[in-house]
Nucleic acid binder design. Structure first.
Lengths: 217, 217, 217, 217
DNA sequence: TATGAATGAGACTTCATTCAT
DNA sequence: TATGAATGAAGTCTCATTCAT
């Protein structure tokens, strides 16, 4: 079983973007600086300097500083998230998971890997959500309903087989994200996400989730 | 059993601060604006305007804009968190919890109430952690070790009685925070934390935690 | 008969404006630079430098560069023009003009003096009209209808006495402005308005207008 | 009697210019934009976009932005004005005007038609005169002396015949331009020059001028 | 203590112009 | 000839901070 190679999605997006090397450099540098110092805490002159580019070049392509942010987040929101979601979900359909442990372990590992690979975008996204909760509301709704429909169906098969507690899908997903987040969030915030032992974290998280979500006979 | 009245800690801090009414107004307004728009996204002139105060007054007491931030977060970090922690822990000591459910339900409700009451400070804190992960590192360490020592002792009694799984305290706390966070974080981010049904959320969270953390005979 | 002292209207407006000396200096300098080099051709840094003021000060009071323009033109449009118009028209009512020559000479001299005194504002206004014909349309309509009502009544008395040709007021005013403008416009554009011999210009213009507007017996 | 077809002078100049279609497009677009928004208010990138041309192309032929301005105004100043002037003056010489009315009517209509046809160039010219009164001084002198010599001679014949008041040519031309301008300027500024009823305007203007300039017996 | 005018560094952005392709 | 990415100087504007009143 192969983990989808989500790490390269940002780079792949760059390559397909028809942006020049300099403009790609602007995006890469902006991703790092926005994640490190926040959007407001990053100046366009610093972006230009670190990208080895004139300040005019920064604006030639992206028009405004917000344009850079959009260029970073839109592919992530419009393509990466749904794509990765679909990607993993189609794989899920094709696979036979005999027990909850195998299924949970797969999903947790997949999502955790994705989160680590895109931790910078996630960090930036969190900041934007704080700065502008309205703008993000629609995005959240879209994502949630998508996950409910797809992931929820997988869960239903386990409920039908009597090996998953019969709680609302929303509640189960809540614990999924909460438990996964309890490993990812601290690691990302401290900036040591790369040192996270994914295998161990996944098996621990899976163990706890399976306990908590197995029906009591 | 009385829930500690954490909602008023900020206000109480203000009253005890010997600040003039205008300077208290500056702090209140800053708390709201920093939480809404971020520290960098808030200008001192806007603080002054909303506080009904001149621009000079903002700096008279707090010296710098960072000084305002410190005046908001330091009481929260230095007093409020430990105080509330201690407060709740001393109460815990005095109480007899016969089963895990009663204990977890109490703790979760206490912490969730606290988080909701201080959601703005938490929001600001998250932003600062993103902007400056180093500065916060020490704080995290301090808090964690404190919780480990105090909360961990309570957990040990349950482990000894064989009604709590024998995992490291750190791991159990991780799931505590993760599950509690799965209710609080979305509510706070969306800005609808006040509409959260705390009773229902706590009993749900407790139910799941108890399932996941009860030893399998 | 005393010519109204229109030269000091701008200065008087400044004094009544509650602006600090520095901000008044910004306005004075802006008036000169906008008139000399055009609005677009004048930079705020040059305004600041010539006004002996920091660039921040320029924006402290007037918010934007357009704000400076508004601060220059609004008093001119909202107060000066109507005021001067009313001023001269009430005087006209009180005066007895036996013949067309005396009346025309008075009016022409009054308006020509006013135009020379406010030549810079007029220059700026012309530029703005070119840049933004829509915005000015309403202003033109207001002024025209005002002049028609007031000046037109004076003209009517001369028509009734049979010493003024019975053309529409609008047409007569057209020639008034055209002939007066034929003296003022070149002088202002060349920048030698101060060398204009007002007495001679007025008597010449009056002579021509009286010839052209006297009924042919 | 044929009115010289001045409307096409700009187009004719373009055709004879050996400029490529793209470069002609640059000039046409620049003429419109400079007239609408002013020279300083028009960016070369906007010219390029509206002309359907790359930014580099704009500079390939005209070197600088001022070069575009020169390419627009120089033919107008160096060729169009004198040419049209000469053109009309040679025609005038060949024609016999029995009375002032016929002569004035012809001249006014000719010049008014010319002004309307070249209103955009005139608008641009006015802006440039405001921005740079020195540069234009020489041009004005040239034009004025030319008109004085040619138009002045025609006027002299009428003075000799005793049907034109014996004022200095300069003064008569002043009223000519003033009265003609009183029709043209408002129409051009408001942007409704095309709706101007030239026939009616000319006969009105002529009527007034003839009254004002006919000797009193 | 409180005010708010003043500051100047620096932010974002525009734009005329150049040059490799 | 034509393109458009790149430039960097300059423009408008913001903002934390100071200080005389």
């Amino acid at each position: 079983m192969e983990i989808s190679n989500v790490e390269t999605l940002f780079d792949k997006t760059l390559q397909e973007s028809k942006l020049t090397a300099k403009q790609q450099s602007v995006l890469k540098v902006s991703l790092n600086l926005f994640a490190e110092k926040g959007f407001d805490g990053t100046s366009t002159s610093e972006i230009a300097k670190q990208a080895g580019v004139s300040e005019g070049t920064v604006f030639k392509q992206f028009k405004t500083k917000d344009g850079i942010l959009a260029a970073l987040l839109n592919p992530f929101l419009d393509q990466v998230v749904p794509m990765a979601a679909t990607e993993f979900l189609t794989e899920v359909k094709d696979l036979r998971f005999d027990d909850l442990t195998a299924f949970f372990n797969y999903v947790i590992k997949d999502r955790m890997t994705f989160a680590i690979a895109n931790q910078k975008q996630l960090k930036i996204l969190v900041q934007e959500i704080i700065r502008n909760s309205d703008m993000i509301q629609s995005f959240v709704d879209k994502i949630v309903s998508r996950i409910l429909n797809t992931f929820g169906k997988s869960l239903q098969t386990f409920k039908d087989r009597g090996i998953l507690v019969d709680w609302p899908t929303e509640r189960i997903i809540r614990y999924f994200l909460g438990v996964a987040g309890s490993y990812i969030v601290p690691a990302v915030l401290i900036g040591k996400a790369d040192q996270l032992d994914i295998e161990k974290s996944c098996s621990e998280a899976t163990e706890f989730l399976v306990r908590g979500l197995t029906p009591i006979k």
